[in-house]
């Protein structure tokens, strides 16, 4: 195929433990390390592997976010994406708004495949890929742990509650990645230098003519109740007795 689009979200890094603001107005994100959403990074890796196997000509990384999201797109370019598009906005978008924007990019770029993570690790919504597929009126293969392209068809193994489900979808299609699809490569220094010559096309969100106004009202943020630490036992006897006392074991 000619082109694969990979959608990347800039999120608080996986290793950072976030905190809720004391007044419940949000989550503290200022000054935290930001990264490509790990699931999206896996999606990008998969796209790069398909191109390296000769199954695609071009990999285009797309992000929606503030100017600083260019950092994550630079990382994507250093990993091997050919070019990048940033739809610039400082607003927090609902997944449906993100899907509407991505749909416009898809109409413009006409990819044979769209790859993105199954969820972003900030809002944990797990919606954007499915919504994009619906708006585009194309197949979706979510939670992918294996992806094979054969001409105009993709065979996707999906991690579902009951095990592994295999489906076949006509291309173009939207595929969302699960953790075991692959292990993303590390970026090497020369690649970072090379990436500086690649282009990031910045698109003003208003130029796309889509409704991105939030619909849901977020009223407050809370810190979840913590489970308190229990007691320690020294022996198996004590453990079994404690569980019997609680009526959990016969």
């Amino acid at each position: 195929m000619q082109k694969i689009i990979v959608c990347l979200k800039r999120v608080v890094d996986y290793n950072v433990r976030i905190r809720v603001k004391p007044d419940g107005s949000g989550v503290v994100t200022e000054g935290l390390k930001m990264s490509i959403n790990p699931f999206d990074e896996i999606a990008l890796e998969e796209a790069l592997r398909l191109r390296e196997k000769g199954q695609a000509q071009e990999v285009v990384a797309v992000s929606i976010g503030p100017e600083d999201a260019q950092q994550q797109l630079r990382t994507a370019l250093a990993m091997g994406a050919d070019r990048a598009i940033l739809v610039q906005t400082s607003a927090e978008l609902e997944p449906l708004a993100a899907a509407r924007i991505l749909h416009q990019i898809v109409i413009r770029e006409q990819p044979g495949l769209v790859l993105l993570g199954k969820q972003a690790i900030d809002d944990d919504c797990n919606q954007t890929g499915q919504m994009l597929a619906a708006l585009w009126d194309r197949p979706q293969a979510t939670f992918a742990s294996k992806l094979e392209l054969n001409g105009t068809v993709a065979t996707v193994t999906r991690e579902v509650d009951a095990g592994l489900e295999v489906i076949e979808v006509d291309l173009p299609a939207v595929v969302t990645s699960d953790l075991r699809l692959n292990e993303p490569r590390y970026v090497k220094l020369p690649d970072i230098m090379k990436a500086k010559k690649k282009t990031i096309d910045v698109v003003a969100i208003d130029s796309l003519g889509v409704d991105v106004a939030p619909v849901l009202r977020v009223t407050r943020y809370d810190t979840p109740p913590v489970r308190s630490k229990g007691g320690m036992v020294k022996t198996v006897d004590e453990l079994v007795t404690a569980l019997r006392d609680r009526g959990l074991l016969a």
């Binding site: 609902e94 997944p95 449906l96 919504c125 919606q127 499915q130 919504m131 619906a134 509650d161 849901l216």
Partner: peptide
């Protein structure tokens, strides 16, 4: 579940509402 997570966003998008 993986069933609902796969399905419902597609429904919501067809309805034009957030999920």
């Amino acid at each position: 579940t993986t069933f609902g997570k796969d399905l419902l966003p597609r429904v919501a998008a067809l309805l034009g509402v957030p999920q």
